[in-house]
């Protein structure tokens, strides 16, 4: 086992464990904070897999912005301080779906790659990614701006309600 293997195993365990806490904790705000740990461990996984820029983007966007958005969203509907056990649904179907999709994906990857070895690519720095985006992926990049614009307009319209 190389250093990369050990790091990936440890970080994967942290990510899976904290993801489990996200769905098992009864404090809804704590679920959001456990999500920070899970997403941070995933960012560290990206870092180990030499996707440098993607890892820091994960920290900036998901840990820094999306989790804040999620916490604001829970604050808007309710701002619970104690545990809220009434939010629990029936666990059996959810566990079945989660295990099914997780196990299915794991099986797909294992049968897809068997025990083959993959060399880690050269570090995915901003320069490498910039050359890729601005030579071959310009159209998706521009479409992304339309998507973000649509989401912003939608958020404003929904948040303003009937007052307009």
């Amino acid at each position: 086992m190389t250093v990369t293997d050990i790091l990936l195993l440890a970080l994967g365990a942290v990510a899976a464990g904290s993801a489990l806490r996200v769905v098992t904790t009864t404090h809804i705000v704590r679920a959001g904070l456990w999500l920070v740990v899970a997403l941070g461990a995933m960012a560290a996984c990206y870092l180990v897999l030499t996707a440098e820029l993607v890892a820091w983007v994960q920290v900036l966007i998901y840990v820094g912005a999306v989790v804040v958005l999620l916490l604001f969203a829970t604050m808007l509907t309710r701002a619970p301080i104690g545990p809220s056990p009434e939010l629990d649904r029936a666990r059996f179907p959810a566990a079945l779906i989660g295990l099914g999709s997780g196990g299915g994906l794991a099986a797909l990857f294992i049968f897809g790659y068997r025990w083959g070895k993959a060399e880690l690519a050269a570090p995915g720095t901003a320069g490498v990614l910039g050359k890729e985006i601005f030579s071959g992926w310009v159209l998706p990049f521009e479409v992304l701006s339309i998507l973000l614009l649509a989401a912003l307009v939608g958020a404003i319209v929904v948040s303003r309600g009937e007052r307009s």
């Binding site: 912005a65 999306v66 604001f72 973000l148 912003l152 404003i156």
Partner: peptide, 10 residues
């Protein structure tokens, strides 16, 4: 607050 957070995400 939500709209401001969303503007930040954007």
């Amino acid at each position: 607050y939500y709209v401001y957070a969303y503007l930040y995400v954007l």
